[in-house]
Amino acid sequence: MSTHEHDRSPHDRGPRDRGPRDLSPHSRAATFTCVRCGLTLNEAAPDGARRDHCPSCLHSRHLTDHVDGGPSDCGGRMVPISVAVPRGGDWRVIHRCVRCDELTSTPIRGDDNQLVLMRLAVRPLAQPPFPLEAFGDL
């Protein structure tokens, strides 16, 4: 468990407001490494908000417990499984933890890879459970 504690240092700090005002000068310079593609990332996105997934592969880590809001002791890799479009709001990425199957939704950031986002959004349409040709007659 000691290595576990070691490699989650800057990214894990309890429940917090994810707005720009929350970032102290120290955490503005903090970085973390993507668990999937190994990219070293600044924790602050260009729009000032705190980043919780990799902008290039959209993967994340399960560090916040979404039931009681505190830090989670799972630390598993979170895979993006879907894109949600709330009415009149920004897009959100739905993540699933590969270790404990927890689902979370986080807003997309301005520098997220838009082609990867679109690929995630149209993935259900690549293999529809019913023929889509019938919808042309409607």
Partner: peptide
């Protein structure tokens, strides 16, 4: 909220 697909297409 949204639609997702498993790797097998479900």
């Amino acid at each position: 909220l949204s639609m997702s697909a498993r790797p097998d297409g479900e």
